[in-house]
Amino acid sequence: MSLKFLQRFNVKDRLLGLIVPLFVLALWQGAVSQHLFSELLLVPPLTLWNTIIELFRSGDLISNIQVSLNRVFLGFLLGGSAGFILGVGMGLSPVINRALGPLVKVLQQVPELAWMPMIILLFGIDEFARIFFIAIGAFYPMIFNTYQGVSGVPEKYHELARVFDYKSFRYLSKVIIPSALPSIITGIRLSIGLSWMFLVGAELFGTESGVGFLMIMGRQMFQIDVVMAGLVVIGTLGLIINTLLKKFEQFVLRGRVSFDGGAA
């Protein structure tokens, strides 16, 4: 992995990429030491680093990360699988597509966050409300991409399945899903990305645990270092999740150089 990375970007290129971060860091440190801003509004980079380490050591960070990851996972599982099942159904059956397609399209016009007050009215600000909200975020990319993939299975593969007498579950698992897989995986990637985004939204509406909770507490107690630490953690975890998902995608789609099957 690291070898491949080095091949793509040589050392000089990677040093170029460090210019902006170092510049920002210098500007930041400079602003702090010149007392351009109050320490309340901008802590020195080193203080931020110490805060992160401290939060780590005390175990606060770890336990809150766990809670947040758990929420994302459950929300994605709920919304993602609903989107997947409906997407497959709509992709395979014109009847289901006609019945559900327009409804989904209309609902999709509503920004996800606008549902949150309604969800809170229905369920109260509890764990289920948060997970349900994340599930809404995870639902759309999954149903959309699964539908695209399944309805886009080339006619030639349908024919092949008929010639070799593939039916029902075998047809689905051996032909439809593998053929739609690149699109489905894109759906999973977007879906988890949005789950992560809406996790933060869900937690800002009020919670007593999670990375978002750390940030709310930081804000209320005017500890800007904690708020920034939360931001760093959210960004880093997002980056890690995204990288892992890309690796996962490469692994699952290995061997498929051209998806149309080469010369065809």
């Binding site: 990677r14 990429g17 460090l18 902006v20 971060p21 920002v24 992560w196 985004m197 809406f198 996790l199 933060v200 939204g201 800002l204 978002g212 940030m215 709310i216 930081g218 804000r219 800007i224 708020v227 920034m228 939360g230 931001l231 959210i234 960004g235 880093t236 997002g238 980056l239 995204n242």
Partner: peptide, 18 residues
């Protein structure tokens, strides 16, 4: 590019408290 790509990983909503 690299800086932009890293910053982009932070969900926009996360910036709100800051």
């Amino acid at each position: 590019g690299p800086f932009f790509n890293v910053i982009r990983q932070v969900p926009i909503i996360g910036f709100i408290p800051l």
